[in-house]
Write a protein that binds this DNA or RNA. Structure first.
Lengths: 152, 152
DNA sequence: GTCAGATGGTTGCAGGTGTAACTGTCGATT
DNA sequence: AATCGACAGTTACACCTGCAACCATCTGAC
């Protein structure tokens, strides 16, 4: 029964994800007191401009409660502003404030530097293989939506 | 400033890990009411026999509080037994009970089947590339130990 | 032997998280 | 216009988690 956790794909992937994320996450946590959902929300808004909470969730694969709390946190930091939509009052448009965009720009700089460092650490072909493997996962496995139809 | 989260390695890896883990985690959660740390602890003990909590933590990359709580949970399920060590009374040796081993065997079966299914979904070369990429991460990046010396 | 520091393991606390239930709004059908 | 179901977003609750502090024990230096 030679099963070893260290060769089990879910375990290995989680480990790798943790290793690759850790130092970067430590940065936005320490420098800006941001959580991961907040960073993702900031990144989405910085990249695409005005979005609704639902759009952010789809774009960044986050559950709507995560988005909701991240939006609140960013709002309290004054990095984001809500504005209501007259046509459909269920929706809130979200935009970065000037201050938010400043943080976003700084974060992008950090992200780029980190990505470059990763590329260096992994080596050119290590990186290429990893990206090819990730592409296979992205196209071969269903998105982890935890989705359920309205009446289930 | 064409930064996109979808191309950022930490994000992609986390997404992939979630996709790959999700269905399997759903199984041990639903069938055995186990958390991930419990499954890892069970797997470690099933594979290596008698271990201490610290050894489990090292082997499965878990913080000691996670291990501690997982051990307690498995003990309450009567799947694991502690026994003290006369030479060093700080240490507890942990072993699966007969019942625990039965669950372990079932889980291994599930794990094998799942791994096979993943291999099929990813395709032969998708899998090969992914594993090569993971190997690069494992050898190129420091383990995410969150370690700190005694006085820091 | 004694004491300081290290080590194995547990626990209190302060957060982050998912689930389900909720509010308010919209759209379609009647 | 009244109603029913869908949808955007929020919240209460229970649970998991990390960190720091803790207790007990061991080890080595003296």
């Amino acid at each position: 029964m030679d099963f070893r956790l260290e060769t089990f794909l879910p375990y290995r992937l989680n480990q790798a994800a943790e290793r690759v994320s850790q130092r970067f996450a430590a940065q936005y946590r320490a420098r800006y007191r941001m959580t991961r959902p907040e960073w993702r929300t900031l990144a989405a808004l910085g990249t695409y401009g005005r979005m609704t909470a639902t759009e952010i969730g789809v774009n960044s694969s986050m559950h709507k409660t995560k988005v909701s709390r991240a939006v609140r946190a960013l709002e309290e930091k004054r990095w984001l502003k809500r504005s209501e939509n007259a046509d459909d009052r269920r929706i809130e448009h979200l935009v970065l404030t000037a201050g938010g965009r400043r943080i976003y720009d700084e974060m992008i700089e950090l992200a780029r530097a980190y990505q470059a460092e990763l590329a260096h650490l992994l080596g050119e072909d290590g990186l290429a293989r990893l990206e090819a493997g990730l592409a296979a996962v992205e196209s071969g496995l269903p998105a982890a939506t935890a989705w359920r139809g309205p009446s289930d």
